[in-house]
Amino acid sequence: MISLAVFSILIISIPGFGFESETYGRYDIPQSCCHSYSLRKIPYKIVTDFYETSSLCHKPGVIFFTSNGHQHFANPCESWVWRYVISPK
Rank of each mutant, 00 (worst) to 15 (best):
M1W: 07
M1G: 06
I2G: 01
I2E: 07
S3P: 00
L4D: 01
A5H: 07
A5M: 01
V6H: 01
S8L: 09
S8C: 04
I9A: 13
I9W: 08
L10R: 05
L10S: 06
I12C: 08
I12A: 15
I12P: 00
S13F: 06
I14P: 00
P15S: 04
P15R: 00
P15V: 02
G16C: 05
G16F: 15
F17H: 08
G18S: 15
G18C: 04
G18R: 09
E20C: 10
E20T: 13
E20K: 11
E20A: 12
S21K: 07
S21Q: 11
S21C: 01
S21I: 02
S21D: 10
E22H: 05
T23E: 07
T23Y: 04
Y24I: 02
G25W: 14
G25L: 14
G25S: 11
G25Q: 14
R26N: 11
R26M: 13
D28C: 06
D28H: 06
D28W: 11
D28Y: 11
I29P: 00
P30V: 05
Q31H: 12
Q31W: 07
C33L: 08
C34G: 05
C34I: 01
C34N: 03
C34W: 02
S36K: 10
S36P: 07
Y37F: 13
S38L: 11
L39C: 02
L39N: 08
L39K: 13
R40N: 12
K41H: 08
K41L: 14
K41G: 05
K41F: 04
P43K: 06
P43M: 07
Y44T: 07
Y44I: 09
K45S: 11
K45T: 03
K45F: 11
I46S: 07
I46Q: 14
I46D: 04
I46H: 13
I46Y: 10
V47F: 07
V47P: 03
T48W: 00
T48L: 09
D49I: 03
F50K: 05
F50P: 01
Y51D: 10
Y51I: 00
T53F: 03
T53R: 06
S54H: 10
S54Y: 03
S55V: 04
S55M: 02
L56H: 14
L56M: 05
L56G: 02
C57I: 05
C57K: 04
H58K: 07
K59L: 12
P60M: 03
V62G: 05
V62I: 12
V62Q: 02
V62W: 03
I63H: 00
F64P: 03
F64E: 06
F65A: 10
F65I: 14
T66K: 08
S67M: 14
S67Y: 10
S67E: 15
N68K: 15
G69I: 10
G69A: 09
G69L: 08
G69M: 09
H70R: 15
H70P: 02
Q71E: 14
Q71D: 04
Q71W: 12
H72L: 13
H72V: 10
H72D: 13
F73D: 11
A74K: 01
N75P: 09
P76L: 08
P76S: 10
C77W: 11
E78F: 07
W80A: 03
W82F: 08
W82M: 15
R83P: 07
Y84N: 01
Y84E: 05
Y84H: 02
V85F: 03
V85E: 06
V85Y: 06
I86Q: 10
I86G: 01
I86W: 11
S87F: 12
S87P: 00
P88W: 02
K89T: 06
K89P: 09
